[in-house]
Amino acid sequence: MRNVRIYVLMVGTPLLGVALVLYLGQHLQPQSYIGGAWNVEIDAAALSSSPCAELLTTLNQPALNISQSGRYLLVRLNNRAATTVEGQISGTTIRAGQESGFEARSTCNGKNAIEFTAGLSKAMPGQVQLNGELRLAGCAGCAPVAFKAIR
């Protein structure tokens, strides 16, 4: 009888725990899914004075590839340098490449080459869209340019 009690306690309790966790988990709010390849529309001419303008002029579609791990993003531009920046999604807001010292750095390589902020919107059922602004490194005086991305 003691063995049965121990068995029920040590096996039954965790099983009940699993059922409870699965119930509680249903109410969790996951991050929006933005992973995959995106076609980007951008007016790169406004950033032509930046020494890093080539990062945008050599873009091929789909220009943006996002590898998503929950709220953590790895954003890769489909350009000659395969520019890759880290980012995060919070709700419907995406921020990428923003690290301290962005303005001061002039290098066109690495994690500080670009930065962007975008909002996620569901234009039509099954179609999501990113609308935001993008900046290039080494061009503190340049105004950010608007872009639109569709998956």
Binding site: V18, G25, P30, Q31, G70, R71
Partner: peptide, 29 residues
């Protein structure tokens, strides 16, 4: 069952941080 339970319990914490809406919590947990 014990690591299974702890794994699903950990999933409660990790799901909003390292997963997204393309995966259900049941599948993830």
């Amino acid at each position: 069952v014990l690591p299974f339970f702890l794994g699903t319990l950990l999933a409660l914490y990790l799901y909003p941080r390292l997963s997204d809406e393309s995966v259900t919590f049941a599948g993830f947990g």
